[in-house]
Amino acid sequence: MIVAEAKPIEEILAMIDRYDKIILAGCKECAAVCAAGGEKEVGVLASTITLARKRDGRAIEIREVTLERQCDPEYVEGIRGFAGDYQAILSIACGVGVQYMAEHYKNIPALPGLNTFFMGGSLEQGVWSERCQGCGTCILHLTGGICPVTRCAKSLFNGPCGGSSDGKCEVNKEIECGWQLIIDRLKALGEFEARYTELFPIKDWSTSRDGGQRTIVREDLKQ
């Protein structure tokens, strides 16, 4: 999932300061699963904003909605009927959702209520960890199922570097060295000799963000 975190409330309040009638839009997909922008968080944020406004003796009307997805036009269009009655859309979906709101409702400002961080999964309830950077050329079959692009701070393909110490990364002693994990895993799989002795060729990063904004087209699905 895409993992995001709520922005500090002060930042959100400053963002919506000039509006008195807003839509607060959550998303039932990733943002809901990472407990940042689902129906529940929409309710809590709406209440928090209302409290802040009441504290200052100012009224605000908040329309609470939680869309199936904010990254699909058909669902984003779901608020078309009433969007025009509001001054701004505060989206607590990921960055994609905020941009889709902006693209679909051109005359209404779309504001981000979350900081979107990474593609990852949950380690336990309330803890999420990054796993994928979407580099566009997956090599997990060669690295024991551990991603060096994500798990190594330098995204090295022939690691570890000299900063690896006791299995930890020099960037932060709390972070495990991705290459130590890869080596341990390859050994456990009995693939160490076969895999680790071969140098990775230079990676073509043009499939990653370096190639500019990416688009995938499936001609068989496209209308």
Binding site: L51, K54, R55, D56, G57, R58
Partner: peptide
């Protein structure tokens, strides 16, 4: 409560 009085922080 300031939420009731509206007198700010």
């Amino acid at each position: 409560s300031p939420i009731r009085t509206g007198k700010g922080k």
